[in-house]
Design a protein around this nucleic acid. Structure first.
Length: 152
DNA sequence: GCCAACGTTGGC
DNA sequence: GCCAACGTTGGC
């Protein structure tokens, strides 16, 4: 199993929204590196930290699980969607998404708390200039967060 | 609202 | 294929 961190703006899809809907397609990714992580790196059963970004207090809000492999992101075909991409077609989709399932809502771990943990210094999310909405998390990072920050 | 960092676009 | 301009992300 691989581990990931996936950013979502809670105004759009929050951990509570995921809990209510049980599964959601991870629509709206418009960055090739993040898309390729979904297409090439993610497998059903992988787990991810669900991270709230673009909000007053960013941080980890829960855990989700990949429940469907990458498939075309429907929002790219929808002229009414903010994620519409006129260069994409049904025959030649450009953007993909996996589906994720709710696992749990955790204690909230603010970005500032993550930054204060020496063992997490290498986390992609903490690197200067990081903007990727999907990043791999090492097994060591995953275990440290689970063992030391989520359950005490 | 500001701004640093970064990705993408498009002229050449 | 270079690179300047531009748009976006996302923390603060």
């Amino acid at each position: 199993m691989r581990y990931w961190l996936m950013k979502s703006e809670p105004d759009e899809v929050s951990i509570d929204d995921l809990a209510a809907r049980r599964t959601v397609p991870w629509f709206g990714v418009r960055n090739y590196q993040a898309r390729n992580f979904m297409r090439d790196g993610m497998r059903v059963g992988d787990r991810a930290f669900f991270y709230h970004s673009g909000c007053a207090t960013p941080g980890i809000a829960g855990i989700c699980e990949v429940c469907a492999p990458a498939h075309p992101d429907d929002t790219q075909f929808d002229p009414a969607s903010p994620y519409h991409d006129p260069r994409a077609s049904r025959e030649n989709p450009r953007w993909l998404c996996v589906d994720v399932a709710f696992v749990e809502k955790t204690r909230f771990l603010p970005l500032s708390l993550l930054r204060a943990q020496a063992p997490l210094a290498g986390m992609a999310i903490l690197q200067r200039g990081n903007r990727l909405s999907i990043t791999p998390v090492s097994a060591a990072e995953w275990l440290f967060i689970n063992d030391h920050l989520l359950r005490d």
